[in-house]
Amino acid sequence: MTDLLPSPPPATRRPAPPGALSIGWARVALELRLFVRDPGQLVFSFAYPVVMLVIFGSIFADREVAPGVDFRQYFLAGIAATGIMLTSFQAVGLAITEERDRGDLVRLQTLGTPPLAYGIGKAGQVVLTTAVQLTVLLVVAATVYDVPMPDDAGRWLTFAWVAVLGVLAGTVLGIAVSSFVGSARAAGTGIPAVAIVLQFFSGVFFVFSELPGWMQQLAAVFPLKWMTQGMRSVFLPDAAKAAEPAGSWEHGTTAAVLAAWVIIGVVVCARSFRWRRNAG
């Protein structure tokens, strides 16, 4: 058996190792494979938004938040944005701290893996799982609760860019936060806590315009508020924009704030990402 052991090629005849994109692509496939083999992740990512829609849709079955706007319709916008945050920010932040604690990341370090390749793997997995999650959510909302779906391409385009910017911001912020929360245990309580508070502040469970002013202003610093607002511009009738803080959907501001968070996240990742908890 040992005659099959590898022997090293001369250093001069060894080609350059594969680049970050090539490894990143392989990692997307790996991350997806690990995702579908983790029942907890599958259920949480795909069923949680639907379950929330069912619960809130049942509690506020006949409530209108504005003339012609059913609560479920309003809530769908919020839970779609929340779903994106959970599959990106929360899931990525938790996964990385676990992988770091388990030593998975030390292996990547010993292999000289470009951190970019690792980030690509996470982002690719998040994009695809979020796409599935949103599809399931919209199908249930449309078929079970008769929430009207937008019928013009412009609104679907808005849906697409809000979702993509939200996924990117959530992913890079999830990677960034994993460098500061310490152990997977600490992350397991800290990251979901942040996510839940943001949901309350950002008008997911309550109508945003009915929240106290200070809460609205604080929420406006973070991406989730802008994601829910962007999603409202997709699923609510145009007349509903009168109830928004600025009296309009603020697409320009939404895009700018989300893009700013993507950039901040990338900068923090680049400066703080580490394979081990105690680097040095």
């Binding site: 060894r14 350059a16 594969p18 392989a26 790996l30 494979r33 983790d38 030593g103 030390v106």
Partner: peptide, 25 residues
């Protein structure tokens, strides 16, 4: 190393096939 994980939900062959992608030869 002393203990490094590799993704417990993968098979041995999947693990080896995956990490082959990181090397030149």
């Amino acid at each position: 190393g002393q203990s490094t994980g590799a993704g417990d939900a993968l098979t041995v062959r999947e693990t080896v096939d995956h990490y082959a992608r990181y090397h030149a030869t």
